[in-house]
Design a protein around this nucleic acid. Structure first.
Length: 462
RNA sequence: GGCCCCAUCGUCUAGCGGUCAGGAUCCAUGGUUUUCAUCCAUGUUACAGGAGUUCAAUUCUCCUUGGGGUCACCA
């Protein structure tokens, strides 16, 4: 059974890059009926926050990503880590290090001056004397000092590291007793049965350290998939300064979860020429073997296109529901079908969709000057009056075609082109020269509102 | 700087020795539309460079260049 996890550190909101690895992990587990866990890496008490952890959970909720069991907080697993640290100590695979911060800094400086690699010098590795007084020791693990460590990465291939180049006896527990990242990651993944680790590229160079822990503890090493980074326009790692990187910002901007997920799944992964993936298709088709090796640049042009696609293909009932946060009560509007049919073809975001609806539903308060100048001529008033007169007499106006028929009659009787009525009428109804079909607009707002808008336009332009 | 990773249209990508190098997006043009949007059609744009291997390299190998990541008692 495939067991994956998403393990963010709660130092901020859920990041777009993090969401992608979460999605990959989620899909890979769900595809085969496996497990997907959410684990909060909050071992650094100084930097993590409860709010951040909650924000991540909320983002998962919005996107409809579910995880198995409860959220796991590393901060509540201290006894477990303590137990394994003790085991390592007892077996002589780890040891207390009494090097002070100052001493460590000094060592680093000397090494830098000598252009050597900065690393722990192993001073207390085989120490047997009496430790110095007044220093709370950290605990270091005995890492191999020669040979190689191979990360069998399923995305990058085998990556061979020389122990001499990258390893030293790294700290697994701080002086205050709290365990460090590379240690807890390995312990938790092993204990939780995680056998497929999908995570960001930036963790590749940590992996040898984690392998050291796995081996020291006798745990089975999982399969690793190091997914390339998502870069900004400058080709750098995506950071908070690069505009919208908080997943929830996309909700605010009016993006649908389906669109965001579809967008993200295609960033660094592909399935032939297919661009559109429903959640079901993602789960069915996703396979990490098709993950790209190279980084991709974050560019939301395609997200807009996808969002528009999902809006167009949503049912009117769904859209009416999604618009309620925008102060639009359409669920019970008698013309909501016509309204949503015409606006959903035109919006890239739900926010735009709401604005388009309001443009139709609300009586215009201003008229676009350029439009008036261009299309509201002397004879326009005459045409609008003729149209208004016919409208007054007409009964049973419901469908767009009912209104269209009246427009046609006016055009025929006055022997004018369609533009002669369409343009000024558009200004009267919407205050500008662009927008949905007028027959639909009138059908939506009804006869009375149509007459009112015509009268108002004539009054303010004669 | 050490170590590691990466390299096809502007962007997301297909390609797994022989292809007119495909799709999507963006952009442009045309059609549809009273308008705008949608939709449809068409078009512009790419294998970083250099050596090999091979009958044949975008594809395999090496080098160069460029980009990125990582080097904590952060995660």
């Amino acid at each position: 059974m495939i067991v994956t996890r998403f393990a963010p550190s709660p130092t901020g909101y859920l990041h777009i890059g993090g969401l992608r690895t979460a999605l990959f992990s989620y899909l890979w587990a769900k595809k085969s009926g496996g497990k997907f866990f959410l684990r909060i890496e909050d071992t650094d008490k100084a930097r993590n926050s409860v709010e951040a952890a909650e924000a991540i959970v909320r983002a998962f909720e919005w996107l409809g990503l579910s995880y198995d069991g409860e959220v796991i907080y590393q901060s509540s697993r201290d006894e477990i880590y303590a137990k394994y640290i003790k085991q390592l100590l007892d077996e002589g695979k780890a040891y207390y290090c009494y090097m002070s911060k100052e001493e460590l800094a000094e060592l680093r400086e000397t090494q830098m001056a000598a252009k050597e690699r900065t690393m722990y010098n192993g001073k207390y590795r085989d120490f047997e004397g009496t430790p110095p007084e007044g220093i709370a020791p950290a605990i270091r693990i005995k890492a191999p000092q020669s040979g190689t460590i191979t990360v069998k990465d399923r995305v990058k291939g085998d990556v061979v590291f020389n122990a001499l180049d990258i390893l030293d006896d790294f700290v697994i527990a701080r002086a205050d007793g709290s365990p460090t990242y590379n240690f807890v990651v390995a312990v938790d993944d092993a204990l939780m049965g995680v056998n497929e680790v999908i995570r960001g590229d930036d963790h590749l160079s940590n992996t040898p350290k984690q392998i050291v822990v796995y081996e020291a503890l006798g745990f089975e090493i999982p399969n690793f998939y190091h997914v390339p980074m998502i870069h900004n326009h400058d080709g750098k790692k995506l950071s908070k300064r690069d505009g919208a990187t908080d997943v929830m910002e996309y909700k605010e901007m009016g993006y649908m979860p389906e669109a965001l997920l579809n967008f993200l799944v295609r960033l660094g992964w592909s399935y032939g020429d297919q661009e559109i993936f429903s959640m079901e298709e993602m789960q069915e088709l996703f396979n990490p073997k098709n993950i790209n090796k190279s980084a991709s640049i974050y560019n939301t042009e395609k997200l807009d296109w996808l969002n528009a696609h999902y809006i167009k293909n949503s049912s009117n009932a769904e859209l009416a529901e999604l618009l309620t946060p925008y102060d639009l009560i359409l669920t019970s509007h008698d013309k909501k079908e016509i309204l949503l049919d015409v606006i959903k073809e035109r919006a890239k975001t739900l926010k735009e969709l709401a604005e388009l609806a309001k443009e139709i539903l609300e009586t215009p308060t201003v008229y676009d000057e350029k439009a008036v100048k261009k299309a509201f001529k002397e004879d326009s008033i005459e045409v609008l009056n003729a149209f208004g007169a016919k409208l007054t007499k007409a009964e049973e106006l419901h469908l767009p075609s009912d209104y269209h028929q009246i427009m046609e009659e006016v055009v025929n009787e006055m022997n004018i082109g369609f533009g002669k009525i369409g343009q000024p009428l558009r200004i009267a109804l919407l205050g500008k020269l662009s927008g949905p079909g007028l027959d639909s607009v009138m059908a939506i707002i009804g006869k009375n509102e149509t007459m009112l808008r015509i009268a108002q336009a004539i009054a303010s332009h004669s």
